[in-house]
Amino acid sequence: METLTLAGTSVDVNAEGYLTNMDQWTPELAREMAAQVNIELTDKHFEVIHWLREKQREGVQLSIRKIGNSGLVDIKQFYALFPGGPLKISSKLAGIPKPASCI
């Protein structure tokens, strides 16, 4: 396990930089992590991030499709918010584990 110090606090992360304890997450931390990948977080970003955290707590297996069906954003908008790998990036910023693929 490694430690990441951002926004004045230290959090535990794994080798890929995902938080290992989602309760250490703060909005400020998300902002700083986002800045490192050149994303400025808007309210819409935070809506998605909060939704991801809520689903993670419910134990839901996350997918791009579920976010597309969430009513928050469609898949195209999701890609626009988190360019590249939207689910991987948004999960990292939400302080939850990298979504596992089941196969």
Binding site: V60, S63, R65, K66, N69, S70
Partner: peptide, 8 residues
């Protein structure tokens, strides 16, 4: 109405 949230 028995499917999960993936809509699949």
């Amino acid at each position: 109405n028995m499917g999960d949230e993936d809509g699949l």
